[in-house]
Structure formats: structure tokens, C-alpha cells
Amino acid sequence: MFTRILTVAIQEFRIGLRNRWIMLAALILAAFSLALALLGSAPAGTLGVDRMTITIASLATLSVYLVPLIALLLAFDAVAGEIDRGTLLLVFSCPISRAEFLLGKALGHVCVLALALLFGYGVTAGLLIVSGTGTVAGLVDFARLIGSSVLLGFAFLAVGYTLSALTRQSSTAAALSIGVWLVLVVLYDLALLGALVADSSGTFAAKVFPFAILANPADAFRLFNLAALNASDLVGGMAGVGESLPFPPAAALGSIVAFAVLALSLAIVLVRRIAP
């Protein structure tokens, strides 16, 4: 079982290397994070906060937008593309279960994403250390950011597989993926903001809002990282949310994992129903 999962994972990773997906994702992440680190360092002096902390807080927000996008782009083709190209027919005739196939894909893609994040954000961390503004504690923050970004990516990979298995057509899966990204990453926050503004009694803010944040892996990710940095007051966006929550910030991580497992299970069920 593990050999087969690993076989699919290695092939997926190799394809990621060969079609330069890893390189492209790493370059995008590196470019954005360097820009944030270099251009966004201006306010650090006035606020008197560690420059590395500021950078990591900005990177967490960057991750919220970029990582789901990269994950969805990796995943939308995973099932539908193989149906389109006709490669799934042969794979499924082999003694590999549909669950093993999808788990292998997920493992391979998570490794692709992890490598890209490690390189993309690693460059920025290295630069800060070399320029003398970094600290060892800051490196721990970086590691946490990368680790939780991988987890966030995993959740959106699983969403991508679900869409891919649901539509069975690459083009439709791609369109839906962009739609899902827009809803979960952009519109969801706007809707929450609107509800907060409209809610005069404060019951929404106290009872619904914290759980609404947990339910969306992108928001849960942001919450976890900003709370862990103790910097939410400084970098805004979710000022003070961490302190007023009815649960510890680490619960946010658990919610991302739960979301990912749920989406992946759904994808496996859908893949089982495919007649290639």
C-alpha cells in the first residue's frame, strides 16, 4: 500500500520538478516575500517592533492569498486532466485503489508546495539574517509560517481534488477552482466584515464570528499565525481577535486539518465513482 502511494507521490513530484511548477511557485513566493520584506520594512522603525516579526506578519497575509491559489492550480488537473489525457484508464487498471491514488497525488503535491515555500520564504529569511535584522526566535516564526502554509496548501489541494473529481473536465475544474479561491479567500472575509458592521447588538461578533473564522481554512490560518506572533494589534486586519476568542489559537490549526481531511475524503468518494 505504502509503496503504491509513494510511487504515485514520487511521480507527481518528478512531474512538478520537470514541468517547472516547483520553480515557478518558488519564484513567485520569493518575489512577493522579498518585496514585502524590503518595501514593507519602513514602518518597523516607528513602531519599534522586530523587523522580522513585521515581515512574517506580512508574509502570513501573503500566504493567505498565494498558497491557496498555488494549491488549487496544482490540484485542479489531478483527476480531470488524467481523464482528459486518457492516462487514468491505465492507472486504474493496475492493482492500486482509488484512495491510494489520490493520497499519493496529495503527498506529491504537498512536497511540491513545501519545497516551493521553503525556497520562496527561505530566501527572505536568509536575507534578513544576513542583513543583521533577523533573530533565532524569528527563524522559529518562519518555520511555523512555512509549516502552517503547507497545511493551508494541503486543505486547498483537497478542495482542488474534489472539484477535479466532481467535474471530470480540466477546463470546468479550473474555472470552479478560481471561483472557490475568490469565495473562500476574498469574498468570505468581505461578507464577515459586512456582517460585523451590520450587527449592532454584538451577538454575531461574540457567537458566530469566531466559528465562522474557524470554518474557513484561509481565515483560520491567518488567525493562527497572527495570534502566534502576538502582533495582530500592530499589523491590523484582525486586531485583537486573538484575545477575545472562546478557544485557543491552536484550535485554528486543528480546524484546518479537519477541513482538509473532510475535503480529501469527499474527493476519494468522488474518485471511486469515476468510470475512466
Binding site: 511521480q11 518528478r14 486518457g86 491505465l90
Partner: peptide, 13 residues
Amino acid sequence: AYLPEAVAFHKSL
């Protein structure tokens, strides 16, 4: 063992 009609493999392998 199966050989599908118009068999396809991943291009970059």
C-alpha cells in the same frame, strides 16, 4: 494486464 486504445502517458516522463 491492459493496453487501452490510443494509450497515453504523461508527456514529461
